[in-house]
């Protein structure tokens, strides 16, 4: 079957690309595969991977969440600002708030039937304003008594705790996708929304959950970021908006929905994070990386979009 083979290529091409990328950079700069560099890579890659995982979920159902970078930034700010109130448990509270916020966003998107891009673009604007307002546009050190951020800064048996948490998140989401109704409904909505609704899928609850997951992952990405820098700034995740979308499409998840998944998200996140390393190796200035990521995103989208399904392309 031609369809089968295409499917296979779509799921394994990104992995092959990742392996090639790593191999090539190892040839140019053998140091990148040293244990130290790998551990450095993991803490560098963790925020991106978390954002990509979160961003993948709405896209699987054909929506998009452009607010993830904003959520990550506000998370960092809130961990500092709310510390006097919630003490050591602040970051946990903030993650819960973020999940609630995401759920609200999904709810507004489905209940009012507003396109997700405009809802999340609006919340991105609100969130970036909020981050500036709450922090008074200054970077602050992260309080040392915050338990979650403290844990994330450490490692167990040489493995950074960020990596362990990431694996845990992936495992939980994987189980939910495979063994609950939710997982199946997500793909149903993405591959044919009308048919899914006519089959009794609850589009409302499913979408709300998707955006809750997306915001939750973004908040955790925010924690990863401040655990590395130990400073929180209102523009912490400012340039990660594009990276999160790039990661989603590079993993093979189609922007048109219904194709892709967690595996693709992890691979896409790794590719994106590794591309940043490659950029450093071959001497692209960090500021110019945007060109590379913009172009790779366009190429990946050109290759993976199912144009027939979209009908009129706006």
């Amino acid at each position: 079957m031609i369809g089968d083979r295409l499917q296979l290529i779509r799921s394994f091409a990104p992995l092959a690309f990742l392996i090639l990328l790593v191999a090539a950079s190892a040839v140019i700069a053998p140091g990148v595969l040293q244990p130290d560099s790998i551990i450095g890579f993991i803490s560098d890659a963790a925020p991106v991977i978390a954002l990509v995982i979160g961003g993948t979920f709405p896209i699987l159902a054909g929506s998009i969440d452009l607010s993830v970078a904003g959520v990550a930034s506000v998370t960092g700010v809130l961990v500092v600002v709310l510390n006097p109130v919630f003490g050591p448990w602040t970051s946990l509270v903030v993650v819960l708030v973020a999940i609630l916020f995401g759920a609200m966003q999904g709810f507004v998107h489905t209940w009012l039937q507003l396109p997700s891009f405009i809802v999340s673009l609006a919340t991105l604007s609100i969130l970036s304003g909020l981050a500036l307002l709450l922090s008074n546009a200054t970077a602050e050190p992260v309080p040392s008594d915050d338990i979650l951020v403290g844990i994330l800064g450490n490692s167990v048996a040489g493995i950074p705790n960020t990596a362990i948490l990431l694996v845990l998140i992936v495992a939980v989401l994987r189980l939910a996708m495979r063994f609950t109704r939710f997982g199946r409904d997500v793909y149903a909505l993405g591959s044919g929304e009308r048919a899914a609704l006519m089959s009794g899928v609850n589009g409302f609850v499913t979408r709300t959950l998707l955006f809750a997951i997306s915001a939750g992952c973004a908040a955790i990405a925010g924690l990863f970021l401040i655990s590395v820098t130990s400073f929180s700034s209102p523009t912490l995740a400012g340039n990660l908006l594009l990276l999160s979308i790039v990661g989603v499409v590079l993993g093979g998840t189609a922007i048109s929905g219904g194709v892709g998944g967690l595996f693709a998200a992890v691979v896409g996140g790794l590719i994106t994070a590794w591309l940043r390393i490659v950029a450093v190796i071959i001497g692209v200035a960090p500021t110019a990386q945007n060109i590379i990521f913009g172009l790779t995103a366009l190429i990946a989208v050109a290759l993976t979009t199912e144009r027939k399904k979209l009908g009129v392309i706006k």
Binding site: I245, V249, I255, T287, N290, G294, L295, A297, L298, I313
Partner: peptide
């Protein structure tokens, strides 16, 4: 051209050109 001829959603196309523009400006700086 990407939107009309390559038939890619404008949202994602212009997200790409947005950052390409930022990158180009940074390179020119």
């Amino acid at each position: 051209v990407l939107n009309a001829i390559m038939r890619m959603p404008s949202l994602i196309v212009t997200l790409g050109t947005w950052f390409i523009g930022l990158g180009l400006a940074a390179v020119l700086f």
